[in-house]
Design a protein around this nucleic acid. Structure first.
Lengths: 220, 220
DNA sequence: TACAAATATTAGACATGTCTAATAAATCGA
DNA sequence: TCGATTTATTAGACATGTCTAATATTTGTA
């Protein structure tokens, strides 16, 4: 049985490895709101327990065992987020903190029955894929909005960064999973782009925002 | 913010005070599967924090503050049990351990929206009353089955002890909340009683069992 | 009522996870 | 490529919650 802190560290390594290809001590410390020395201690311990490889000064990577565990945590997190939004009526920007707690409740039966209750959803309210009970993730051909070009028409399928600030900004602009955008112009100067939603006036999105939106192409 | 262990101790004091009028160190230790010395330490700490009064050698009692907290824990526990049984299809004898974990998830919004989602239930699947958000419990005129007499007809409204063993025994006999029993005979020798369910053959219940069943009288 | 048994507390050890400060290694820029 | 900066690790302290063993108190019974 792992502690909450151990699970949090494993999941943080998983998330950071998605982005770069290693998870570094400082990034882990920032994400976990702790200190680098504490992270080093924990990495050493988790390496001993076989959940990850820790190369001092060169970051950490999950083993197959750690990967499997991280996927279960991600699965639990996203299923709970789905439950909170779809059944309890939470806003999609209100669920993260609560799901963070719920994902540590240990019960195979609970999570599998929750999954069934929700109809085995493949994506959560942020558009992120939900691993199945074997840890498999359904693939989608998506890219970041900031690599799209003028003339594209796209549908938002995921938000890759879930800070409250970003989620509220999207909410304020009326953007959500499934929203359709026509890209009118991309400004090379700052990477900002002018976009027009299906039913509404055009507005501008900074690169900081478009960078975190996953989209798929659709017919205009 | 209290730790899980602190919350567990407060709830255990609450439960034991329901039965006797004080909670004693040894009983707390047994219930919490820990040692008496650990309980003493914790009682001292919780007394300092104002959740209970601890009279060394004479047990512990909750303060108003501790009582309020215990009632919130009971509320959360019973709402989650209701959710697990009514929505996720758990058996009523499978929910305790999971609810024990879920009750420590901290979010006012979560528990209030869960309450609304379930339709503000007043009783959980074991028939125990669910405190409302202010900690108020709806009263019922009930008594234990073992103080009933031959000739009574009663409905089971609660099971006061929730060990797996008892719950499974009840399940095997087809007894559940809402079951109706006609009491045919009570044996003074061992306190056992012969009872007959509405649609089924009569059988015997030992005092160990009938002691834990809360019933209300109904017209035969 | 006095002593044995049961229960409770205290003292001290230990495991865990966290931190700060000191030290070490890697990286970046002139 | 060298020194400054950033990042990482180690060493040691500390808080928390647990335990065992020793001691103290209460309770039950002859």
């Amino acid at each position: 049985m792992l502690t909450r802190s151990e699970e949090d560290h494993i999941k943080a390594v998983y998330v950071l490895v998605q982005e770069g290809d290693k998870a570094f001590t400082k990034d882990l410390a920032d994400r976990l709101r702790t200190k680098a020395s504490s992270v080093t201690d924990m990495l050493k311990k988790l390496a001993e327990k076989g959940y990850l490889k820790h190369e001092p000064y060169y970051g950490a990577k999950l083993t197959a065992k750690g990967q499997a565990l991280a996927l279960q945590l991600v699965r639990k997190h996203r299923l709970w987020e789905t439950f909170l939004v779809e059944r309890l009526g939470f806003g999609w920007d209100e669920v993260h903190e609560v799901a963070e707690q719920l994902e540590h409740v240990a019960s195979e039966q609970l999570i599998n029955q929750l999954d069934a209750y929700l109809g085995h959803p493949a994506f959560d309210p942020h558009g992120d894929p939900i691993p199945d009970r074997n840890g498999r993730i359904r693939a989608r051909r998506t890219r970041r909005l900031d690599v799209s070009v003028a003339g594209d028409t796209v549908r938002i399928v995921a938000v890759s960064e879930t800070t409250d600030g970003l989620l509220r900004l999207l909410d304020a602009k009326g953007l959500r999973i499934g929203s359709t955008l026509a890209i009118q112009e991309v400004h090379a100067f700052d990477g900002s782009m002018d976009v027009k939603p299906k039913n509404g006036a055009a507005f501008s999105l900074s690169k900081d925002v478009s960078h975190h939106l996953q989209v798929e192409s659709i017919q205009p």
